[in-house]
Design a protein around this nucleic acid. Structure first.
Length: 145
DNA sequence: GCCAACGTTGGC
DNA sequence: GCCAACGTTGGC
């Protein structure tokens, strides 16, 4: 299983909205960046990702699961753009802010820090575990710790 | 709301 | 294929 991080501006698509979609999940559409798209093409059903609020909040607030593999983005006819579907799995009880991530030396290599503008990015297993710990959630069961 | 960083577009 | 102009992202 691979780990990822999805950025969303809460004014456009918030964690609450994602949760309301429940198990059915929702397309992660609207991505118009090649690197972000390539990352989504790499994803497999069951991969997990963090849900990050950009612009407002600036924190990781939830965990999602990829529930449909890469397919054409329904919001455009441009065949260059694909996306996956994701569904909410769990809240992060203690949201992990960008500040906290930047303050943690072991997270200095996170794409969130090094590739600031990339909106869909990979997360290393070690980073995943540490961020889960910081957020008060068990990385395996996703239960609050 | 500003603006730096950076990705994309298009003329040559 | 270079690079200037332009548009967008996202932290502050």
């Amino acid at each position: 299983m691979q780990y990822w991080l999805f950025k969303s501006e809460p004014a456009t698509w918030s964690w609450d909205q994602q949760k309301k979609k429940g198990k059915a999940g929702e397309e992660w559409d609207g991505i118009r960046n090649y690197q972000a798209r390539n990352n989504m093409r790499e994803m497999k059903i069951g991969d997990r990702g963090f849900f990050y609020h950009s612009n407002e909040g600036l924190e990781i607030v939830g965990v999602v699961e990829v529930c449909a593999a890469s397919h054409p983005d329904s919001t455009t006819d441009d065949e260059r753009w694909d996306c996956v579907d994701v569904r909410a799995l769990a809240d992060v009880p203690a949201p992990v802010g960008l500040k906290a991530i930047k303050a943690e030396p072991r997270l200095a290599e996170m794409a969130l820090v090094t590739h600031m503008r990339l909106s869909v990015q990979p997360v290393k297993p070690k980073e995943w575990k540490l961020v889960c710990k910081m957020g008060g959630i068990d990385p395996e069961t996703l239960k609050p710790v």
